[in-house]
């Protein structure tokens, strides 16, 4: 109990240090763009695959849920509500946590156990500024873009399933989906993506910094990073949905 509280306090201090390093020095622009490229580019293929298949299943189950009502035409609307508003942002966040987040945690953890972080401090380079800030800026730049790409893929895949597998009317699907999605909904998705990006980056880097020694310590830090960021993101998702859409 006490150790859990101590961990939370430690995490808070870590966030404060990262925040201070972000504003005290100029962020390393070139490295931030490099990180953004890595995070975005590495996560993109897997994200496309997952968005597409979540879209297909959403269409199938939405159809099954509305058939008893005779409301199967409303699949387009269901996609806009469940897919665009809810699933796409949280899905992107969990995949980026699973891919980029674990990479951050394991890279930083390996640097920690090989004492490279201590070496940075010896050279009077702030390790938070050098290691965390570029990842932080990178993930904030790229996560909203990934969310938009994922929304597009998800809607496209569910359109294809609705029209070709379930035999629904295509123009009607498009019309219902676009009537349900207000432009401001997309901005809310961007807002969610920012929040999830901040959570993922801080949690993953924190677990990397505080790893225990040895290969199993690195594995454990990587593991904890993805689970904790997924749990925090899905709790945050409900709170944000209730505030923004409730």
């Amino acid at each position: 109990m006490v150790t859990a509280l101590a961990r939370i306090g430690d995490f808070g201090l870590f966030c404060v240090r990262v925040g201070r390093s972000t504003f005290r020095h100029r962020p390393p622009i070139a490295r931030s763009i490099e990180e953004a490229y890595h995070i975005g580019f590495r996560s993109l293929p897997i994200l496309l695959v997952i968005s597409a298949f979540v879209g297909t299943n959403l269409a199938l189950q939405g159809y099954n849920a509305f058939v008893p009502l005779g409301g199967q035409r409303l699949v387009g609307m269901f996609i806009a509500l469940a897919g665009v508003r809810e699933l796409a942002p949280i899905m992107v966040a969990s995949m980026v946590a699973a891919k980029a987040g674990t990479e951050m945690a394991s890279q930083i953890a390996v640097m920690r156990i090989q004492e490279q972080i201590d070496a940075l401090e010896v050279m009077a380079i702030d390790p938070h500024w050098y290691l965390v800030v570029p990842r932080f800026v990178g993930i904030c730049l790229v996560l909203p873009a990934l969310t938009m790409i994922s929304i597009f893929t998800l809607v496209l895949a569910s359109y294809l399933v609705s029209v070709y597998q379930l035999g629904l009317n295509g123009p009607e699907f498009i019309q219902l989906a676009s009537a349900t999605t207000r432009p401001v909904d997309l901005w809310y998705c961007v807002l969610k993506a920012f929040a999830f990006g901040i959570v993922i980056c801080l949690v993953s880097c924190y677990y990397g910094f505080t790893t225990r020694p040895g290969p199993s310590g690195v594995g454990r830090a990587t593991n904890a990073a993805v689970v904790v960021s997924a749990v925090v993101c899905s709790l945050l998702n409900y709170v944000m949905s209730e505030i923004l859409f409730g």
């Binding site: 897997i46 997952i50 394991s106 594995g219």
Partner: peptide, 20 residues
């Protein structure tokens, strides 16, 4: 150690993609 980190990472990503 880096290889173990990569194996852990690949496990999560590949298994999630496969089962979806």
């Amino acid at each position: 150690a880096a290889g173990v980190g990569k194996a852990v990472n690949d496990t999560v990503v590949i298994s999630i993609t496969t089962f979806i």
